[in-house]
Amino acid sequence: MSIVISPAARDALEGWLAASRALKGTAENTLTAYRTDVVDFITFMTEYKGDAQGLAPLSRIAVTDMRAWMAQTRSGGASARSLARKLSAVKSFYRWLAEREGFEPTAVLSTRAPKFEKKLPRPLNEDAARAMIATVGEQSQTGWVGARDMAVVTLLYGCGLRISEALGLMGRDLPLGEAMRIVGKGGKERVVPVLPVARQAVATYLKLCPFETETDKPVFRGVRGGALNPRLVQKVTEQARMQLGLPATATPHAMRHSFATHLLSAGGDLRAIQELLGHASLSTTQAYTSVDTVHLMKVYEATHPKSG
């Protein structure tokens, strides 16, 4: 028997998602994940309590109910990290719902997420990053496609862009100057310096690209002229890393991590790097200090004159 969520609960969920979209500029992919997580939660509560979870029952969720949901989610194969993400979505929904409906959401909001080890980004060293860019450009037998892929990956490493940000560049953003304005996650704007090598890579691609540059069309095109699919960038990077014998962690996103880590190693200021990456929280950027500390300790252990 399929579980049907009450109309009131579904309306409330859609209202919260609409508010997140309008007020916070939450990305559509994130909203889709939020919807799935909250629907799964309400579905569990409906089944667990044997009653359609309208707004009144949802306002009476107890600590024991939350524990039962978390236990069921873990036993279903969800990792601690995945459960923490789901709980975050449920809490966000409950904050909004409690304020709107006037109930006390403490039982939900006081639920602690399971602890999990945060994965630190694994950057490439500088030689590997350069080799990756060059090798990406050699994966296609079509000249303009190779130049395109090389330009995209150069922007990831040279400007610290996310794939979505690089592929979101439009004809109106050209020609690239010494800096460009990027709209990142949550509609957050930042200004990113553009190195000459990145400008040259994009210019080379545009010169070879068989499609006209149009103001309202993406800069980076697929072979049929439509927007370039991010999966193709991931695929060509995967081919290049295998050719170079690099680990599976050498992904397009690792190029952005490498940008940050290499800036930090060169003495870059953490807050300035936070701005360049478009991180909302400095704590996100601070992950790079751990990476850099690991590197410094390796150098220290290899070079320090040990006594005895």
Rank of each mutant, 00 (worst) to 15 (best):
P7S: 09
R10Y: 01
E14S: 06
W16Y: 13
A19V: 02
T26V: 13
E28A: 13
Y34I: 06
V38P: 01
V39E: 15
F41G: 02
F41N: 01
I42A: 06
M45I: 02
G50I: 06
G50C: 06
D51K: 10
Q53K: 04
G54D: 15
V63F: 02
V63N: 03
M66Y: 02
M70L: 14
Q72L: 05
A78W: 10
S79G: 13
R85G: 11
A89Q: 03
L97D: 05
E101I: 09
P105W: 07
S110L: 11
F116N: 04
L120M: 10
T135G: 05
W144F: 10
V152T: 08
T154W: 01
G158H: 08
L161I: 11
L161F: 07
L161P: 07
L161Q: 09
R162D: 11
L167P: 03
G171E: 11
A179T: 14
V192T: 12
P193Y: 01
V194D: 03
P196Q: 04
E212A: 15
T215H: 14
R221V: 08
G222W: 05
P230W: 04
K235D: 14
K235L: 14
E238N: 14
E238D: 15
R241D: 07
M242D: 13
Q243L: 09
L246I: 09
T249S: 15
A250W: 12
P252M: 00
M255Q: 08
M255G: 07
M255A: 08
T261C: 09
H262Y: 03
L263W: 05
D269L: 03
R271Q: 06
L276I: 08
H279R: 08
S281I: 00
T289N: 04
T289S: 07
T293D: 07
V294F: 04
H295S: 01
